[in-house]
Simulated assay, not measured.
Amino acid sequence: MDNIEEKYRLLARQLNGELNDAEHELLTDELNQDETFVAKQYVLQVFWQKFFPKVKSQSHERIMTDTMKRVMGIKEVKRPQMTIWYSAIAILVVALGISLARNLLVDKNNELIQYVANVGETKKVVLPDGTKVDLNAGSSLVIQKDFTADKRQVILTGEGYFDVAKDAEKPFEITTSHLKVSVLGTRFDLKAYADEDEIKAVLDEGKIQLDGEFNKQQPVFLKPGYAATLNKNTGELQIQPHKQQSAEQWRDGKLVFYNHTLAQIARILERRFNARIIILNDEVKEYRFSGDFSHANLFELLGYLSAARPFTFETSGEYIVISK
């Protein structure tokens, strides 16, 4: 099996208890042929057991009641699969590199520390070196207990605004599923949600170096006032001037959209309001909106959007279903 993402997708499905017989046989063969892959499987299991057992239960939630399915004439609606999330976790753990693998494998007492901003909240964190991080809703930051030893390494899933304390002797590295950011002292926003197709870094001050799975094989350096956007599917990395104050807005609790698709907005609303949103039509997913909705509650906001581009929305328990 040459596709590395497929390997870690299988590991993720194994941890989630989703492997079928054919996948189990394929994973077993891969583990028998590659001792390094076995070690990485152990690293992922350690990481998983420490931080993500609660996420697993969400895969058993139902999207719609049987009654709602009959009313809407829907034969079958698949349950939300958490495999995409788990695959991202698998990839980013491996992406952190051999150093973390060695530490976890050699020193079983090595501890990891996790900071979490749950859905519906943001959180301010001060790391042991004095670095300040604002975590957006639905985000997680993981560090090792000996964070300030030789190299300052963190793992980010979600979005964080970093004000990195300067230390020329100890580089600061942020690892996401497909991108690594290296800095000494700087201020920037990094958005890397597992359920989104893009990773975006916006630099306010200083300089950052970008390495990762993109078509430009050489490291890329970002200057203040610019944004780097990585498409995780194509590997294309785009560098463009950036004037929007999106990070400042979410840090202040504001909710502002700039030509966002409804699909993008739905993910933001899920994290902001702890909601579950389903959009049934591909056309509706691509509707675009701009505006400041900071003072609107969830249903007011959906009402405003549906008035601008007609769509319907209704609730079923904790779920909101949007259709044309």
Rank of each mutant, 00 (worst) to 15 (best):
Asp134Cys: 09
Asn136Gly: 04
Val77Lys: 09
Ala117Phe: 11
Gln114Met: 12
Asn32Lys: 11
Ile91Gly: 00
Lys78Asp: 14
Ala201Leu: 14
Pro128Cys: 02
Gln218Arg: 11
Phe221Thr: 15
Pro241Asn: 11
Asp66Gln: 13
Asp252Ile: 00
Thr234Cys: 09
Pro171Met: 02
Leu230Pro: 01
Ile4Tyr: 13
Gly160Gln: 06
Val220Arg: 07
Leu305Glu: 05
Glu121Lys: 10
Ser306Lys: 08
Trp250Gly: 05
Ser87Thr: 14
Pro53Asn: 07
Asp197Arg: 13
Phe293Gln: 02
Ala90Arg: 01
Glu300Ile: 01
Arg79Asp: 15
Ile322Thr: 04
Asp167His: 05
Gly130Thr: 03
Asn3His: 10
Leu31Phe: 08
Pro171Tyr: 08
His24Pro: 00
Glu198Gln: 12
Gln153Val: 11
Ile208Leu: 15
Arg62Trp: 09
Gly225Trp: 03
Lys191His: 10
Val220Pro: 09
Phe289Val: 04
Leu26Met: 12
Asn297Ala: 09
Phe299Tyr: 15
Ile155Asp: 02
Asp107Pro: 01
Pro224Glu: 10
Tyr287Thr: 00
Thr148Ser: 11
Ala201Gly: 04
Asp21Lys: 13
Asp197Leu: 13
Arg70Val: 14
Gly185His: 11
Glu25Phe: 05
Ala137Thr: 02
Lys123Trp: 07
Asn20Gly: 08
Val46Glu: 14
Val126Ser: 11
Lys285His: 06
Asp189Tyr: 07
Phe162Arg: 05
Tyr304Gly: 08
Ser246Arg: 11
Asn110Ala: 12
Pro241Ser: 12
Leu179Lys: 01
Leu156Lys: 01
Lys132Tyr: 09
Ser323Gln: 12
Gly138Lys: 01
Lys54Met: 10
Asn32His: 10
Lys254Ser: 12
Lys151Arg: 13
Asn259Ile: 00
Asp2Gly: 10
Pro128Gly: 03
Thr83Met: 04
Ser246Val: 11
Leu190Arg: 06
Leu100Phe: 04
Glu159Asn: 04
Met64Lys: 00
Gly303Val: 01
Lys78Gly: 14
Lys145Pro: 03
Lys216Cys: 07
Lys123Val: 13
Lys123Phe: 09
Leu280Phe: 06
Glu6Tyr: 14
Phe293His: 02
Asp129Ile: 04
Asn3Trp: 01
Ile63Met: 13
Gln153Phe: 12
Ala165Asp: 10
Lys243Ser: 15
Lys151Asn: 11
Asn20Glu: 08
Asp107Arg: 09
Thr67Val: 11
Lys132Trp: 05
Val125Lys: 03
Val116Ala: 13
Ile199Cys: 02
Asn118His: 15
Phe37Tyr: 13
Asp195Cys: 03
Thr157Glu: 13
Pro128Asn: 02
Phe37Trp: 09
Ile239Ala: 06
His295Phe: 11
Leu27Ser: 08
Gln41Glu: 14
Gln81Phe: 09
Gly130Met: 05
Ile199Pro: 00
Ala12Gly: 15
Ala95Pro: 00
Glu270His: 03
Glu18Pro: 02
Ile277Ala: 02
Leu156Gln: 07
Glu318Lys: 15
Gly73Cys: 07
Ile279Arg: 00
Val93Gly: 04
Ala296Trp: 03
Ser323Ala: 09
His24Tyr: 10
Ala95Tyr: 00
Val284Phe: 01
Arg272Gln: 06
Ser294Gln: 06
Arg70Leu: 14
Leu10Phe: 04
Gly120Trp: 05
Gly235Met: 07
Asn215Leu: 14
Gln245Met: 12
Leu10Gln: 06
Glu61Pro: 07
